[in-house]
Design a protein around this nucleic acid. Structure first.
Lengths: 254, 254
DNA sequence: TGTATTGTTCCGCGATGATGAACGCTTATG
DNA sequence: CATAAGCGTTCATCATCGCGGAACAATACA
């Protein structure tokens, strides 16, 4: 509007708006959707018809749903990531060894994305799902990545997304974060002390490729009462580092 | 083209064409993509810019990739399916009990979609992935669904997709299929005797909801040399039926 | 250094997507 | 039972907006 033709193709933007709304609403009718995206019913209807013909949307009785074609898309998108193919089974092992939740993260558009997650026998109940996107500064996984990104990229990301507080312990000061990232670079280990979620602590290590660029990170997360003392400070970090090294080795030979 | 305004919104169709091509090509540059979808570079570029801004596409060095935002979409789409939430752990059990591959399927747009899959200890190596879409007439899972769909829907699907042969054993005759579906309705069990893949046999049962409509099916699949005789004809079918009943029960109370 | 690709920008034209009104239809409501 | 309110759908008009060719820039290659 303000900048005339500088934004993307409206029809496409709207189509994805509709798809996302459809997801948020757990399926919806034309009118409900039209109201939600603030567009005339006819426009929404036209989009739905198009999306249905392309099989990205499904009519389920009296409402529309997003189809499982997205499952197909995402599954190949994920499998294309070498990191996922290589790290997946190692993350399973990490969960099994520690009994806690283990996760695999990568970065996209300045946010952290959970690529995979595995639950050990003692694992806390689920709080995040595969595919979830979280602010990168408030998780051990994110900080492990952030620390090893090139300086330019790092400030670009922080400038764009800021350091919003998502829990009382979240680091919101650039100075403090910079210092912590410095120590992450030294130890190759990042910690999260209830910075995203009260009662949850985690330990993460970055995964670097052959050229030394970060391509993701792995972690172990558990309730604070189990993640403390020597276990939190030494045992778990060592295990995580060990698995990280195995993954990096496997990445080289493939 | 031939029918002027009767097809959907072109911009949206093209956007999805591009996304799919991007997936097929494992990431690509503008020119390569433009060539693949047979459109001018500038048009493709415009779409990519739009998709990137919406975070559905990512620039990875010198080429574009589909982003993991699709993972987020598909994960919520899948979790919205009550069938998935309820049946998932039962499918795990089915795999564990039999040692083979167990799968969960549902129907969309007349095709079978794998919603979930679990591997037992003896499981054959993977041949299909979650999200894959297969012709519905050539799998036990598909036939279990097809048999319990309303007459109208069934013929509509067969009319639309035909009965193409995907293996030497595939049923391609409507009469033959109709007879087999009749027996599926009686037994509540469908078989696949190498009809989709040479050397692979499977046994499936439909899942009906409270009102008696099919909402999916579950199966056990294994190599022909293990799936035969009494095991193929009695033992496995009984196990599958048992789990199917459990799932149906759980569906009622939720 | 020249050449052949690549990704990107620009702009005018004309197709085409957006729109509101109108149509059946089913479901609340008096 | 009649009326009204809501739904999804269709239609035709108009201005917009996406399209595409050509020009440009930035690289890789010989």
């Amino acid at each position: 509007m303000a900048t005339p033709g500088s934004d993307g193709i409206q029809a496409v933007d709207r189509a994805f708006d509709i798809v996302e709304s459809l997801n948020d609403l757990d399926g919806a009718g034309v009118s409900e959707l039209a109201d939600h995206v603030d567009l005339p019913k006819s426009t929404v209807h036209n989009h739905l018809k198009t999306l249905e013909r392309a099989e990205y949307v499904v009519r389920d009785g009296d409402e529309y749903r997003t189809s499982l074609k997205f499952l197909q898309l995402s599954e190949t998108a994920r499998t294309q990531q070498e990191l996922y193919r290589v790290a997946r089974s190692e993350v399973d092992q990490l969960a099994e060894k520690t009994g806690e939740i283990s996760a695999l993260m990568t970065e996209e558009h300045g946010r952290g994305v959970f690529l995979y997650r595995s639950r050990g026998s003692e694992a806390a109940r689920i709080d995040t799902c595969v595919g979830d996107r979280v602010p990168i500064h408030c998780t051990a996984l994110g900080k492990a990545i952030l620390a090893f990104l090139p300086e330019g990229r790092r400030t670009e990301i922080i400038d764009r997304h800021g350091l919003s507080a998502v829990s009382p312990n979240t680091i919101t000061d650039r100075e403090v974060l910079a210092e912590e990232l410095e120590s992450v670079r030294e130890e190759r280990i990042a910690y999260d002390d209830e910075e995203r979620l009260n009662g949850l602590r985690s330990v993460a290590a970055p995964i670097l490729d052959g050229s030394g660029s970060v391509i993701g990170s792995i972690s172990v997360a558990g309730p604070t009462h189990r993640m403390r003392g020597d276990r939190f400070e030494t045992a778990v970090p060592e295990t995580v580092l060990g698995i990280a090294n195995v993954i990096e080795l496997n990445l080289e030979h493939s």
